[in-house]
Amino acid sequence: MSGRNTSWLMKFLAIVRYEILWNIRKKKFIGMFIVAFALATLTLAGGYITSAITGEPVDADPEFVISSNAGLGGLVFFLFAVVTTMNVISAEFESGTITPLLAKPLSRTTVFLGKLLAAFLTLLATYSFLIIYMAIGSFVAYGPQTNLHLIPLSLLGALFSTLIWISIVLLFGTLSKSSLMAALGPFGIWIGTTIIGQILQALSGQGWILNYIPGVGNFGYVDGSPLEGGFPVSTGTDSIGANLVNYILHPAWEVTYYKIDIEGPAQIPSWVPLSTEPLSNVILTSIAVAVVYFIVFFAVSWYVFKHAQVAE
């Protein structure tokens, strides 16, 4: 065929298109989008629900959209990572569609990168929509909002946090070639760090370990312990966006970590301070951890995919 355009970019964008169409037509994705939309709406309605219960009027809150991190948090990151990525490699193998796909004149690296970019773009569009919805909703519900210029930082942080989960989902999916394992493996990590990790942290005082595991991370407090009304700060990769925003607004914040001591003579639980560090340290650590996991997990997934044989 004459005039055939064999540029790498064209082929790469073909994979991106292929994957985006798959993403947005997945029932799982549509379902997750509805859930995220409902969660955002619930966040917006929180003040009004409280008002209906207590009978107190709803106050204007110019920090609402920023303080709520535009409604984006760990659970949303994890779930969106699962629904956009659990099928990226594994479902192609499970359904057999990998066979005609890899028979095309594309390198496996091109296929791999194209699928990743598609997942990223799907998330970017979804989070952008949710953030815009939250910003408009906050304005309507709680009056004019301040610090809206920090919203892109929240979006960037949300994408970065989700990418860590994506790399984990991708790793499980590529190694197992099973969509079920791609979802269950990361779910185990998420449950482990979110629930079990927090319990261990509070009781053992060894929460620093959570700083080096993807997810919500350790919990510290600014301006006093929880009993003294301290502001909670989570240190994990899920909180990069929120912490960046907090750092810009409060660069001098110091984060103190506590353990719950129940061994006193009165057997009354008390919060014992363990250590303190600047918020900037927290952010740098979580970004470094995220980058290392991201690179290692993606590199392993890429290598496995590049050498995967298609027997069926």
Binding site: M1, G3, R4, N5, T6, S7, M10, K11, L13, A14, I15, R17, Y18, P100, K104, P105, L106
Partner: peptide, 13 residues
């Protein structure tokens, strides 16, 4: 159409 792009076929093709 997508497979055609993967082969580097032009839009007209």
């Amino acid at each position: 159409d997508i497979y055609g792009r993967m082969y580097g076929m032009t839009e007209a093709e």
